[in-house]
Design a protein around this nucleic acid. Structure first.
Lengths: 190, 190
DNA sequence: GACGCGACTGACCGATCGGTCAGAGTCTGA
DNA sequence: TCAGACTCTGACCGATCGGTCAGTCGCGTC
């Protein structure tokens, strides 16, 4: 009945992953159905679910590397404090955002809902610690507000400027972030 | 059969609106069903659709005022250019974000998908002009990157710090924004 | 040639979505 | 008293979602 070539290629796994990344980037995670992904690959929806336990597992595999790097950043920051932690947080976060901006673009604005899923609960905790570090040792709420602007604005800018080369985007963002968080390392402390 | 009091109150319209705002703030627009809203009000889903043509109309009425103010800001900026437009854009945008931060909180991160709806197409155009104004008259991409960080970060910070009083949040955000966009108005232009 | 196995399919499931519809209860004005 | 408007309901619709399942196909092995 079926005239199609026997595609005994186990690389289908990778093809599904790539197709999912493409679709998520356009229509978002929630806005992309397993049917959409299957259509892009050229297989059945059941085939997608043969290779991945469920939709969330697909997302988890796509985000595994950036999440791991974020976890490492969290560990590194935990060993520092005050201004040193703040600088390390800013540099590390900008690095991470630039490096994985394609993955970030997949989730354009869906972070809040996705992080609410229990599978990503630990990321929310890491984000809170990152916010604290970025806020620095200041006392008023100004530091936390600036940290929030950076924490939300930098990834969005990365997703928006996917085509700008790394070595142009990274220093620009780092300069913006340090300026935004400025009150804690003013150029003339004296 | 029905023992319930006859609620001939036409204020149901307002109750539905308030309930929708509450639910949207918790579970987002897409994540909130008409059933959810009806349950919160204590009426049927059909009653919700009696008062509002559809789900999108509900959102539109909730966002009517902030959208109108955004439109006015766009008009004001259009009469200026260069550094003056940049300053007006920063001040106006921070003002708007602080003033309507409850409405912004409703949409936590759903802006991209919602703005993609044809009903909000003009907002996307306004956002682009706002980005241009915030970027200022600089030539490199640095200005646009900083503008994007502000454009995405400020509303998110507003949504996060809903409890901080206006007259504390506004100056803090304005300071952060002007610092982030700094290269165009450095303290020593000479 | 029989068998097992990995890869995959189509049909199907229950749930939920936004939205429609005919009608019922209530109130108002002629 | 009665017509009609207003408000609201329960039942229902088609579409779509993520996910399950029995079975099929091709291939390597015994």
């Amino acid at each position: 009945m079926l005239e199609r070539m026997a595609r005994t290629t186990p690389q289908t796994h990778g093809e599904i992953l790539a197709a999912a990344a493409r679709r998520f980037a356009v229509t978002g995670y929630k806005g992309t159905s397993l049917q959409d992904i299957a259509r892009e690959v050229g297989c059945s929806k059941a085939a997608v679910l043969y290779h991945f336990a469920n939709k969330e597992a697909l997302l988890a595999e796509l985000m595994a590397k950036p999440i791991e790097v974020l976890r490492q950043l969290d560990e590194r920051i935990a060993t520092l404090d005050g201004a040193a932690a703040q600088r390390a947080a800013a540099e590390g976060f900008v690095d991470l955002a630039v490096r994985f901006r394609r993955e970030i673009a997949l989730l354009r604005g869906e972070f809040p809902e996705l992080l609410a899923q229990p599978a990503f609960a630990h990321i929310q905790r890491i984000s809170e610690r990152l916010l604290d570090a970025l806020a620095g040792p200041g006392d008023g709420p100004g530091g936390r507000i600036a940290a929030m602007v950076v924490l939300a604005g930098v990834p969005e800018a990365c997703a928006e400027f996917v085509d700008v080369p790394d070595d142009e985007l990274r220093p620009a963002l780092l300069a913006i972030a340090t300026r935004a968080l400025a009150p804690l390392d003013p150029p003339t402390p004296e």
